[in-house]
Simulated assay, not measured.
Amino acid sequence: MSGTVRLGKVGERLKTLLCDLMLIPGLSGYEGRVRKYLAGRLQELGLVTRTDGLGNLIATLDGDSDAPSVMLFTHMDQLGFIVRKIEPNGFLRIERLGGVPERALPSQEVLICVAPGRDRPGIIANKSHHATTPEEKYKIVPYQDLYIDAGFASADEALEAGVDIGSPVVYRPYWLGLSDQRIAGTSVDDRAGCAVVIEAARQIIEQPDRPTVHFVFSVQEEFNLRGALTAAQVLQPDIAIQLDLLLATDTPDMGYRGDIKLGGGPAMSMYSFHGRGTLNGTIPHPALVALFDQSAQSIGVPLQRSAHVGALTDSSYVQLVGGGVASVDVGFPMRYSHSSLEVCDLSDLEGLTTLLVEAISRIDDSFSLDRDDYE
């Protein structure tokens, strides 16, 4: 592989966490295996974990009770499919779960999740090239017309293998290193965020002065963006810091969307709006914009800015809990969102971790959330 930058201890830990997590399937609503892995890592740090009724994983680190409390959260689920029909000949029809791009599906490898040790590989079939008409060669096949070939000769054989209506299906868990710093994988969104929260927790624990921090790994973000709501309703944080991807715009097809570069450092969203099917998004609280700007400047970490339509995070709902939660989306640049192989840069994850630790350590009993102090 190319690349001359050697990872330090933090970078190596982040890489190990990210790569481990990308190999664990966890479709929205079926996050159990990911949750167990993350709970194990938190418990190794001495944190006590709990799971709410929806499946969110929560660990609380007590701090200054006079300072605003913080919910640092990221989602642990991934997008994929649900089996909707098993054909008599054993082929599987699927429903799309989350924003899966139909144009990138034929011939993809998938994993049908039955149970550890019993998962079944398969492929999304692509009609034989020699039999396609000229019109078909340039047509995007709707997902309803696609099917999975998992090697079954009959519906009974599929059922005997544990595959049934409702079985979760994900892209085949996989990762590869593109360079010493850059990683491609099946669920960088948002297993990279999970890795950063674990590493940030490791470092925040060592901070003598800190607010109370709730580390939350949320469920069902890719499904309906509301999984984190139940955690926020119980925790009632004053501040919500959400970690997720920020769209990298440094590829030939994305330059018009903004100025976010892979390897350019962590990023902060100044505006997000879905624009399709929901009137929701997040405009960050000015106190948190100032906090992250000042923190980045103080420690010399470059902080990129993003503003775009077309994506949404669960902060858009968390911010509406109670009398309102001061919220901000920060994250890492990522290429090729929602495809079977997304790409991130480990230096951005390391920079994001450093920035989070610095910003959270600055939240004390004098930290103001009064908008009139900023607007």
Results as ranks from 00 to 15, higher is better:
Ser269Gly: 04
Pro252Glu: 13
Arg276Asn: 12
Arg276Phe: 13
Tyr271Ser: 09
Gly255Pro: 09
Gly264Gln: 02
Ser269Thr: 11
Asn280Cys: 11
Gly281Asn: 09
Thr251Arg: 06
Lys261Pro: 04
Asn280Tyr: 09
Gly263Met: 02
Arg257Pro: 06
Tyr256Gln: 14
Met270Leu: 15
Arg257Asn: 12
Gly275Arg: 05
Lys261His: 14
Gly264Asn: 06
Met254Phe: 10
Asn280Glu: 15
Gly263Ile: 00
Leu262Phe: 05
Gly265Gln: 00
Pro266Asn: 05
Pro252Ala: 06
Asn280Lys: 10
Asp253Leu: 13
Gly255Ser: 13
Thr278Lys: 10
Pro252Leu: 07
Gly258Cys: 10
Arg257Asp: 13
Asp259Ile: 03
Ser272Arg: 05
Gly258Arg: 02
Pro266Arg: 00
Gly258Ser: 10
Tyr271Lys: 04
Gly277Thr: 05
Asn280Trp: 04
Pro266Tyr: 04
Leu262Ser: 03
Leu262Met: 04
Thr278Pro: 03
Ile260Phe: 07
Gly281Thr: 04
Gly255Leu: 11
Lys261Asp: 11
Met270Ile: 10
Thr278Ala: 15
Ser272Trp: 02
Asp259Ala: 14
Ile260Tyr: 04
Met254Asp: 14
Thr278Ser: 15
Met270Arg: 11
Tyr271Trp: 13
Asp250Tyr: 14
Thr251Phe: 07
Arg276Val: 12
Ser269Asn: 06
Pro266Glu: 04
Arg257Cys: 09
Ser272Asn: 09
Asn280Gly: 13
Leu279Thr: 09
Asp259Lys: 08
Arg257Ile: 11
Arg276Ala: 10
Gly263Lys: 00
Pro252Asn: 07
Asn280Phe: 07
Arg257Ala: 15
Gly277Ser: 10
Tyr271Gln: 05
Ala267Cys: 11
Tyr256Trp: 14
Tyr256Glu: 14
Arg276Leu: 08
Ala267Lys: 02
Ser272Thr: 13
Gly265Thr: 01
Gly277Phe: 08
Phe273Glu: 03
Asn280Met: 10
Thr278Tyr: 15
Ala267Pro: 04
Asp259Pro: 06
Thr251Met: 07
Met268Ser: 05
Tyr271Asn: 06
Gly258Phe: 11
Leu262Gln: 00
Tyr256Ile: 05
Leu262Asn: 02
Lys261Leu: 14
Met270Asn: 12
Leu262Glu: 02
Lys261Val: 14
Met270Glu: 13
Ser269Arg: 03
Gly277Lys: 01
Gly277Leu: 04
Lys261Ser: 11
Pro252Tyr: 10
Tyr271His: 13
Phe273Gln: 00
Leu279Val: 11
His274Met: 09
Met270Tyr: 12
Thr278Asp: 13
Ile260Glu: 03
Asn280Asp: 15
Met268Asn: 06
Asn280Ile: 03
Met254Arg: 12
Thr278Val: 15
Tyr256His: 15
Met268Thr: 01
Gly263Tyr: 06
Tyr256Ala: 13
Gly258Leu: 06
Thr251Gly: 09
Gly275Lys: 03
His274Gln: 14
Gly264Val: 03
Gly265Ser: 04
Ile260Lys: 00
Leu262Tyr: 05
Arg257Met: 15
Leu279His: 13
Tyr271Glu: 09
Tyr256Ser: 12
Leu262Gly: 03
Pro266Met: 01
Gly255Cys: 09
Asp250Glu: 10
Met270Gly: 11
Leu262Lys: 00
Gly275Val: 06
Pro252Cys: 07
Ala267Leu: 01
Gly265Glu: 03
Ile260Leu: 08
Pro266Ile: 01
Gly264Trp: 01
Asp253Gly: 10
Ala267Trp: 04
Arg276Glu: 14
Thr278Met: 15
Met254Leu: 07
Gly255Ile: 07
Met270Cys: 13
Ala267Ile: 02
